[in-house]
Design a protein around this nucleic acid. Structure first.
Length: 332
DNA sequence: TTGATTTGACCCAA
DNA sequence: TTGGGTCAAATCAA
């Protein structure tokens, strides 16, 4: 797979993520929604076309696709992407691209201090790949997260918890003010979790989020709403039939991912549902931009669209889903 | 009406 | 004294 194909796939994922984050505002603008969906479909269509043509380099026709894989280091990474997990495969892809080509596929942005790295710019398309990393300090945990590319870029990305802003201060030597948040349920459940959010001086598109304390609100049997969506999903998936009219607020794409998960598990994969769910959260724990929750609490994945992609990529019926979404590729 | 945000004031540690 | 964290009244929005 060449860089452009990789760029297309990542671009599609980012577009889907942007669409998800702007669903509340776009829900009453069907024409914009249609345009966004079509754009995403076109990107993935181009990517699948390139992937299939790449698998058949001997063919002169671009309308006939050889489904037999042509093994290579990069193709192996693609297979990994489809077969196991998005995050792991992206790591593998990056490592192999670094090894195969004498250049960096992504520009690594190294933050000061003890933090690790995050990837940002994809060559060619100017794509941003927010990969949050964290460092643990004295009882606090620091996380770096990219600002939304669309919509209100002033607010930090949702991490699955509900926060109430209680202060904002100009910080000496910093260009941007620091915002102070506490858990919405502090008063009712005594939840002492707090966080401080501040934009980086040298990268205004990145938030530095410092978490203090542990969420105790979701431990109360009477406090369901503050729990991260990961926990909510786990329970919903374990129930027999989730209902979108539940009082719990779950983003549309998460329901989509659930439906896909149910669909794939019921259509021939022998993987138990519980194992599949575990795999999905394991993948989130291993990287990407999942929320970091102090003291080992389960992080709430905040990329529901990646959830969807993960469900697709983890599915053995992935190609069937693609055929369903992009039927014209084979028809042409 | 209720809950969230804003913002100036207050408190405290260095 | 100063800077950072928090409080709380005023304001805003759903």
């Amino acid at each position: 797979m060449d860089d452009k194909t990789l760029s297309l796939i990542i671009h599609g994922c980012n577009l889907a993520k942007d669409l998800e984050s702007n669903l509340p505002t776009l829900s009453n603008q069907p024409s914009l929604l249609i345009n966004s969906c079509e754009e995403i479909m076109n990107v993935f269509k181009s990517a699948t076309g390139r992937l299939r043509s790449h698998n058949n380099p001997s063919s002169n026709s671009q309308t006939t696709f050889n489904r037999e894989p042509q093994p290579s280091a990069i193709d192996a990474a693609v297979q990994e992407l489809i077969g196991t997990g998005y995050t792991q495969a992206m790591d593998l892809l990056q490592a192999q691209l670094l090894a195969d080509h004498d250049r960096k596929p992504f520009d690594a942005l190294v933050f000061p201090g003890s933090r690790t790295t995050t990837t940002t710019e994809m060559s060619g398309l100017g794509l941003e790949i927010p990969v949050a990393t964290s460092g643990v300090n004295d009882g606090s945990e620091t996380k770096y997260e990219a600002a939304p590319l669309m919509g209100n870029t002033e607010i930090p990305p949702d991490d699955g918890y509900t926060w109430r802003k209680y202060g904002q201060k100009e910080i000496l030597g910093s260009k941007f003010p620091r915002s102070y948040y506490r858990c919405t349920h502090k008063n009712f459940y005594g939840c002492d979790a707090k966080k401080q959010v501040q934009r980086l001086d040298d990268d205004p598109k990145t938030f530095e989020i410092i978490y203090y304390g542990v969420h105790t609100c979701h431990m109360s049997s009477t406090a369901p709403s503050a729990r991260p969506s990961a926990d909510i999903d786990r329970e919903v998936l374990e129930s027999t039939k989730p209902s979108p009219s539940s009082s719990l607020s779950i983003p549309l794409s998460r329901w989509l991912s659930m439906d896909l998960e149910e669909t794939t598990s019921g259509k021939g994969t022998n993987i138990p549902m519980d194992l599949q769910v575990t795999t999905m959260y394991r993948d989130f724990d291993m990287g990407s931009s999942g929320a970091v929750v102090p003291d080992g609490q389960h992080a709430a994945p905040e990329c529901p669209v990646v959830d969807l992609a993960d469900a697709m990529f983890n599915s053995r019926t992935f190609s069937n889903i693609l055929d369903f979404i992009f039927p014209s590729i084979d028809e042409n």
